[in-house]
Amino acid sequence: MQMQTSLPASLPNSLPAGFEALEPFVEYWAGATNDIRWDRRARASMAEIRSFYEAAVPRADEGLAYLEQFPLDAMPDDATRLLRLLLSLPHAAMAVEFHGQPRAAASPFPHGMHIGRGPWPQGW
């Protein structure tokens, strides 16, 4: 069910100008699908999750404001990458804001549960 992305994981100037400070997080945290973003967070250590969360949270509102100029299903590649990166924040927030650990206590990992398609319009 996991969808392939045509975007390389990371490129020079892979994020829009102004968001260079988040560049080190792109490769791991700008996962192409909801399911990949979930899986990456579940596999990360709490220190890794916190370091992403603490770097990206202060830029989140600004990032969403920047992305508002594009139609959701027709963004340039660098904006798509920023969107995917920001969409990992809710996943990181599950660990930081809800569980206080990378995964919910006593929930299985690995497991056979997957987010299929969605949310929309992208389906990823």
Binding site: H91, A93, P119
Partner: peptide, 10 residues
Amino acid sequence: RFQQEHYSCR
């Protein structure tokens, strides 16, 4: 879309 990602995560 951001809110929906949060909802789906939860």
